[in-house]
Design a protein around this nucleic acid. Structure first.
Length: 490
DNA sequence: TGAAATGTTGGGGCG
DNA sequence: ACGCCCCAACATTTC
């Protein structure tokens, strides 16, 4: 390959300049660089297109990336359609001799990439791929027996001690543009933003997509939030988590950047080590769920513990709708679902509570929760979303025990003791005293009246009785677990 | 990264 | 002073 023959950098979930191995490789080659993003929203390759909230994020992230690439000298090329065809055409137009990308774990994307690679090889175009999205490639984290870990803790112990995540690569200083301009779609014409109605106001208020904002958020988190992370991360009414999930999902920041920045803090300041450990452990869960995709290709739809296929899920459209819209009558659940609907994100503690409520209290299939989250979360991620739903349903790898049923009142009292989270997202309960904020149905009539609450009118009555629902779930789950058990000898 | 039921303990009121 | 009971606080087990 001559240095005149351009290199195509195919961007996917790596919408950044810094620590981007594929981009770095292209720039190092000295050849002209053509940055490309392909939107395959018809799902021709079998890759699930982003949902509504994800599309909103993608639009803005591409906007930022495009501006940054243009500043460096080679604008981002946007094309729409099946990736293989798009690449063929672009290679024909530009004479590119090398295509580079950072690898994806999601099975249909990996299949697509393998097919593209093979097809390009036949035409004499080289492909190089890199690990840009994980601390360590999942194939490299193995038990002593050489098998993938099924339990998180030993996985993380091995990864964090036996491996040393690579140092982040610098962002390129400049890009050599191709000889002549390459045609690109206009981003606005992709229709990734909502129009009628424009429901993205809450997303705009809470989020700034893009690499610069991601780096800023990491710095703020390390400066101001990390110190109290171990308790603060469980308090949804506070800004106590990193909120990096959408930035990580879209690759605006890499886990290696996060890892090294956090480790550096732990070395520079005393007393931070436990907080850094707790935080990086969460990054570890991301690694773990991505690795699961390698051996569980249908993790999105099929329970990893196949006994759960027999679970007698209910069919209850009204219940599902009440859950989706935050009208279950349980304030902490409704606050969570409304935070999701309004801002495209939900605090992790509350994700567990609403997940438990859907799967255990309503006995509705975890897949319906997965689908709703896919459409509404800005950080919706094939690995995390599926694995975490399976975790809460009890059918995943290293799952929550089936008998662990969250009590929405106790969880509310414990993690939102002053009711600030509920009041922010369920304003019709704003004036209820703390004592009743998580269980309005047990407030005396005069307290409700004084707070302007009429149950069943201004705020729903609970759609299920938690105690009874818990018993129902335990019975259903116990039967399923027992059915698959091998009878003990004797 | 639970909750509820059940068991244990120890202090204090009281006869 | 002592035994008895009550019950909160904590620990254990069970789902």
């Amino acid at each position: 390959m001559t240095s005149r023959s351009p290199v195509i950098v195919w961007f996917r979930h790596d919408l950044r300049l810094a620590d981007n191995p594929a981009l770095h490789r292209a720039v190092e080659s000295g050849a002209p660089v053509i940055p490309l993003y392909v939107l395959d929203d018809g799902g021709a390759d079998g890759v699930r297109p982003p949902g509504g909230a994800g599309s909103w994020w993608l639009h803005h992230s591409l906007e930022r990336l495009g501006a940054a690439l243009a500043r460096l000298g080679s604008p981002l090329v946007l094309r729409r359609g099946p990736a293989g065809q798009i690449l063929d055409r672009l290679i024909a137009e530009t004479g590119a001799g090398l295509v580079v990308w950072n690898r994806e774990c999601e099975p249909s994307a990996a299949r697509r990439d393998a097919a593209v690679r093979e097809k390009l090889a036949e035409c004499g175009v080289a492909v190089e791929s890199f690990n840009g999205g994980l601390l360590v490639e999942p194939e490299q984290v193995r038990s002593k027996a050489g098998t993938p870990f099924k339990v998180f803790t030993p996985f993380w112990k091995t990864l964090s001690t036996a491996h040393d995540p690579a140092r982040p690569l610098p962002a390129p200083a400049a890009l050599k543009p191709p000889g002549s301009a390459v045609a690109s779609d206009v981003l606005a014409a992709w229709g990734l933003l909502p129009t009628s109605p424009d429901w993205a106001g809450g997303l705009r208020d809470d989020w700034t997509p893009g690499e610069e904002a991601a780096a800023g958020r990491l710095a703020d988190f390390l400066d101001a939030i990390l110190r109290d992370y171990r308790t603060g991360r469980d308090r949804p009414g506070r800004d106590g988590t990193s909120r990096l999930s959408p930035h990580l999902h879209w690759g605006e920041i890499s886990p290696r950047q996060v890892w090294h920045a956090a480790r550096h803090r732990a070395e520079a300041a005393t007393g931070l080590e436990p907080a850094v450990e707790a935080f990086l452990r969460e990054i570890g869960w991301r690694e773990f769920t991505h690795g699961l995709l390698l051996t569980n290709h249908d993790m999105r739809t099929e329970p990893m513990d196949s006994r759960f296929k027999a679970l007698p899920w209910r069919n209850d459209d009204a219940g599902l709708k009440a859950w989706q819209r935050g009208r279950t009558g349980y304030p902490i659940v409704d606050a969570g679902m409304r935070q999701l609907w309004r801002t495209g994100w939900m605090h992790n503690r509350v994700r567990m509570i609403v997940g438990s409520f859907l799967v255990k209290d309503l006995l509705l299939p975890w897949q319906s929760g997965e689908e709703w989250f896919w459409d509404t979360l800005v950080d919706a991620d094939a690995a995390n979303n599926s694995a975490n739903w399976q975790w809460i349903a009890g059918c995943g790898a290293d799952p929550a025990p089936f008998f662990r049923v969250f009590n929405p009142v106790l969880q509310g009292r414990k993690f939102d003791p002053d009711g600030s989270y509920v009041r922010r997202y369920v304003p019709e309960l704003e004036r209820l005293p703390d004592r009743y904020i998580h269980e309005p149905w047990s407030a005396p009539a005069e307290v409700l009246a004084k707070a302007g609450v009429t149950l069943g009118r201004t705020y729903p009555k609970p759609i299920v009785d938690h105690g009874a629902a818990r018993d129902r779930a335990l019975e259903a789950f116990r039967a399923v677990k027992a059915a698959g058990k091998v009878a003990p000898p004797g």
